[in-house]
Amino acid sequence: MRVSIKLFANLRKKLPKGSMGKATLDLVEQATINDLIHQLDIPLDLAQMVLVNGEQTREFGQALTDGDQVSIFPPVAGGSE
């Protein structure tokens, strides 16, 4: 399945320069938010605010579905504990 991701603030370093924090990723079926964060090589404590299709979630074990949009902000922008 394919999901589009957006990374913000200093998490943008995780993607090639010029990508403006945007990418499309292929994930195995049933992949979770945790898997995605791992694949992006983002330390878990830096994934402070995660939105799936515009809704915040802390349930990182939740399986993603094809076409989901995932946005990840680091703690510098606030975010839930």
């Binding site: 957006k6 913000f8 603030a9 605010m49 515009g54 946005s71 902000f73 510098v76 922008a77």
Partner: peptide, 16 residues
């Protein structure tokens, strides 16, 4: 956050 990006960091946060 505030020293690095200022309040402007909120544009993407709020838009998302």
């Amino acid at each position: 956050g505030l020293p690095m990006y200022g309040t402007e960091v909120l544009v993407n946060v709020i838009n998302e």
